[in-house]
Design a protein around this nucleic acid. Structure first.
Lengths: 126, 126
DNA sequence: CTGTATCCTGAAAGATACTG
DNA sequence: CAGTATCTTTCAGGATACAG
């Protein structure tokens, strides 16, 4: 930073192209990615989400949904009925995530097998 | 899990219903995203990486690099010199990540301010 | 049905000291 | 220079029980 390096990697290299260390909303929240996918085709109820998100607990699902609601990528709508009914839907902002996600999903589909193979190879060798 | 799950898949990698639950390599590793960015323009030495990755410890950087090497997205090259010199570079596979990452970075640039505002709003009001 | 309230675990990260 | 070795911390996630 205050040093005089011959050919250093500038400390501001990252902010120029990548403002954040990881992807907001999707980083550091295990289920966020899949939750968004499950809402892609329309609003879903709490219990509806639990089916495709096999294994998720109510607690974690509720936490994830609340967090994502605070980020503005989905909205929670509570209907005054009995039994209670709550729906979650992507916001317009949330929908803008789908494009970038598609790119990442395509990459994963194409390279997941190779990744697993590479890791297995390394584990055998050492 | 105490459940009797008939198909125990790598829960962090393989989807139940959605394409990909999270991004391999980039998910669940805080610094991976930025490390790849730092290698985008060419090989870098260990100490060179520590500059733009301000705050990362040697331990975490080494761990992250090892992990990513095992995934096959980067290679570690050790030169037999004194003082020791080691370079890290993206593999062709690693380079294929840059495209999808660009899409995500663009999204972040465009929406980060809005996200922070939305969260701040939620924390203030409710 | 849609959650909360607790308690617990585990993996990644950070702090610090040391080494070939 | 390029790491390793420990130790501690942190916090998302999971198990379970309970509630409006």
């Amino acid at each position: 930073m205050t040093q005089t390096d011959p050919a250093p990697l500038p400390a501001d290299l990252l902010p120029a192209d990548c403002p954040v260390p990881s992807v907001p909303v999707l980083g550091s929240r295990k289920w966020a990615w899949r939750i968004i996918r499950c809402l892609e085709d329309g609003p879903r109820r709490f219990s509806e989400l639990r089916v495709p998100l096999a294994g998720i607990t109510a607690k974690v699902l509720a936490e994830s949904l609340r967090s994502m609601e605070q980020d503005g990528v989905l909205v929670r709508t509570e209907f005054d009925e009995n039994p209670p009914r709550v729906e979650y839907a992507l916001t317009p902002l949330g929908r803008t995530l789908l494009g970038p996600m598609d790119a990442m999903c395509a990459w994963s589909r194409e390279n997941l097998a190779g990744l697993l193979a590479a890791r297995a190879e390394h584990e055998r060798g050492h």
